[in-house]
Nucleic acid binder design. Structure first.
Length: 485
RNA sequence: GCGGAGUUAGUCCAGACUGGCAGGACGUCAGCUUCCCAAGCUGAAGGCCGCGGGUUCAAAUCCCGCACUCCGCACCA
């Protein structure tokens, strides 16, 4: 299975690996990026910045990872980001208490129900463990946020479960000082933390993970007044709604009322254009409209951008229309004003968010670009050159006759500007294979002819073809081949 | 959390049943072959056999606990 092959590649070639693996008490759900992975991740982030932040003239911030209790009281995470769970006394099976009770007793159970209410229903209706008929322990709430104690008095605070809360909180200051005008996107990249009960599958379900979040603040009365919509009107979206998949342009999605408004369609379009450029196979992607029960507690409309991998459909981006849920919550709690002027209207902006999982995206790109080339006895990653961890290998055909020295010299000329990798050892074919495995698009080889006429060969990863260029042309050649689109 | 299967070199795996020197392949490194696609030859490094405890003269091997990984279940704003 390709998942296993990607994992092996990741471990062997420095993409990512488990955190703290030399210690037996290292816990699941924490992974680290190695040199190859960091280089790849940095380039992915740069592409995100270019295609979303810069293209749409967003603001980018970098907020705290630890935030006080009030933040999460206002955001709803303290009460709603916790599931009521019950545990069987006998067989120790754990269940979602509200769901279990709803199913067995056939009654509606509100998500915010008090745990004592659930216990009452359980004892009154004699609800027992479906597996072993055992009795339950008392219902308790399992909050997925990591709690931390600040200072000597251990004041309550939490590691953020999503990066966006600081965007909401910072919004009034940013809007005023940075001369904001609706609609405006505020973006942030950083780590978020969730105490998953059962993390699985390496980068796909982590307890500590990277998010790239964009919160678009807008006037809810002007969701169809968006001049820039014309930029994406021909961009195609794979929309998966109520079990039907259809590929339509953004324009058609609006004209036929498939999407609720131009603002939503515009950002889904931008997102699709971004992923196109990551090298993900867009034929294996879809925007799935979430049903009422699947949506997050703050969302009024939600689309998940999903990608098909060897282990099934994977959610990469949650696109939620959060209405004024967050700004209203923070406004009530903090007594600060979050309304802003939009021309002459005083409005509490609504928010549409694009909440991207970076780690999952990186995995998906690797899997969609992984190839086993049996004819040439190699595996390679067909990564976009601008995302490749190494842009160019610099190799000496043989070490002697002054070729090694010349190779070092050429490497020194380009190694600051590009991610270049110097390699003298082993046979040339093996060195090309190694570069192929991490998706290096170019390899420059210095041979005997180099010393005579100041030319080198450039070997292209995908075709394995070679051409000869002048040393003086290396810079412009590599620059062009590895430029962002 | 539950059930099942696993964990031995960077990777994949043998050895375990029947306790007795820690092995193989690939990879890595150095050298040779004057060499443009994983060739060959020579040599080398790399392991507290997941962690902790127990039984034993002796434990990778038997027993107990824990952690992690994978597969199901449950969970996953």
């Amino acid at each position: 299975m390709n998942y296993d092959k990607i994992m092996k590649l990741a471990l062997e070639r420095g993409f990512f690996f488990p955190s703290g693996e030399v210690y037996a008490d290292s816990t699941a759900g924490f992974w680290e990026y190695g040199p190859t992975g960091v280089s790849f991740k940095n380039k992915f982030i740069e592409l995100w910045r270019r295609e979303l932040v810069r293209k749409d003239r967003m603001m980018e911030i970098d907020g705290s990872q630890i935030m006080s209790q009030s933040v999460f009281e206002a955001s709803g995470h303290l009460s709603s980001f916790a599931d009521p769970i019950v545990k069987c006394q006998k067989c120790k099976s754990t269940y979602r208490a509200d769901k279990l009770v709803a199913e067995i007793v056939k009654i509606e159970v509100p998500e915010s129900i008090d745990t004592s209410e659930i216990d009452k229903i359980i004892s009154e209706k004699n609800v027992v463990c479906p597996k072993c008929k055992g009795d339950f322990e008392s219902t308790r709430r399992f909050n997925m946020m990591f709690k931390v104690g600040i200072g000597p008095e251990s004041e309550n605070a939490f590691l953020r479960p999503e990066t966006c809360q600081s965007i909401f909180i910072d919004f009034p200051r940013l809007f005023k000082t940075m001369r904001g005008k609706l609609p405006i996107g505020i973006a942030q990249i950083g780590k978020s933390f969730r105490n998953e009960i059962s993390p699985r599958q390496s980068l796909l379900r982590l307890r500590e993970f990277y998010q790239a979040e964009i919160e678009v603040f807008c006037n809810p009365n002007k969701l169809n007044e968006l001049d820039k919509f014309s930029a994406v009107e021909n961009t195609e979206l794979n929309l998966f709604i109520n079990g039907n998949i259809q590929t339509v342009s953004c324009k058609k999605a609006i004209d036929e009322n498939i999407l609720p408004n131009k603002l939503v369609a515009y950002y889904l379009g931008l997102l699709a254009e971004f992923y196109q450029k990551t090298g993900i196979d867009m034929k294996k992607t879809r925007f799935r409209k979430l049903g009422e029960k699947e949506k997050a507690f703050y969302a009024t409309a939600a689309f998940d951008f999903e990608v098909e991998t060897s282990i099934g459909w994977l959610e990469l981006v949650a696109c939620n229309y959060r209405s004024d849920f967050d700004l209203k919550g923070h406004s009530n709690k903090s007594k600060e004003k979050f309304e802003v002027l939009d021309q002459d209207d005083k409005v509490l902006p609504h928010v549409f968010e694009l909440s991207m999982g970076i780690d999952r995206s990186l995995y998906s790109i690797l899997e969609h670009n992984f190839h086993e080339d049996e004819k040439n006895d190699r595996t390679f990653l067909s990564l976009k050159p601008y995302l490749s961890p190494i842009h160019v290998g610099v190799l000496s055909l043989v070490k002697k006759d002054g070729l090694a020295e010349k190779t070092n010299e050429i490497f020194s000329q380009i190694r600051i500007k590009y991610d270049a990798f110097l390699d003298h050892s082993g046979t040339i074919g093996r060195r090309y294979r190694r570069l192929d495995e991490i998706g290096t698009p170019l390899a420059i080889t210095i041979d005997h002819q180099t010393l005579q006429d100041k030319t080198v060969t450039v070997r292209i990863r995908d075709s394995m073809n070679q051409e000869r260029i002048k040393i003086s042309e290396i810079d412009s050649f590599v620059a062009e081949a590895t430029a962002f689109p």
